[in-house]
Write a protein that binds this DNA or RNA. Structure first.
Length: 155
DNA sequence: GCCAACGTTGGC
DNA sequence: GCCAACGTTGGC
């Protein structure tokens, strides 16, 4: 089993939105970066544990824990011409370009673990999240890093 | 295949 | 709102 971090902008889709979604589950759609796509399509497996991170908010922070409940499959939003933010007219139906997984909320952290706190924690210094210029919205996380974040979050 | 221009991400 | 860093596009 692997561990992951998924970024989302809470103004678009927050952890609370995930908690209130049917079955506390959603398709993690809208990823339009090939490296992140490859993780979604090839590497994320049912049962993998996921940290949910809020970006472009104050403070940016890991706010909750989720689990992969369905492995990579085509992201339906790429075919939806009404969804201007996600529609990709270049993506062939017979070999879709973009993939999603389904994730289910496990629990909200009692305390968010802020980016500042992550930067200040030696054991988390190697996380992709704090590497210069790193922008990937789907990132692998080591088991130790995953547990450390949960501990900092008061779980 | 190079690389300049442009677009996006996301912290600050 | 700024801008550094990075990815993508497209002319050549």
């Amino acid at each position: 089993m692997r561990h992951w971090l998924l970024k989302t902008e809470p103004a678009v889709f927050s952890f609370d939105d995930l908690l209130s979604a049917p079955g506390r589950t959603t398709g993690w759609n809208g990823v339009r970066n090939y490296q992140a796509r490859n993780f979604l399509r090839d590497q994320m497996k049912k049962g993998d544990k996921v940290l949910i991170y809020h970006s472009s908010t104050e403070p940016p922070a890991v706010v909750g824990e989720a689990v992969v409940v369905r492995e990579g499959h085509p992201d339906p939003t790429q075919f939806d011409a009404r969804d201007a933010d996600h529609y990709d007219p270049e993506s062939p139906r017979e070999s879709p370009r973009w993939f999603q997984v389904e994730v289910k909320a496990v629990r909200k952290l009692p305390r968010p673990v802020s980016l500042e706190e992550i930067r200040a924690t030696r054991a988390l210094a190697k996380m992709a999240l704090v590497q210069r210029g790193q922008r990937l919205s789907v990132q692998p996380v080591s088991p130790a890093e995953f547990e450390k974040i949960l501990a900092l979050g008061g779980r």
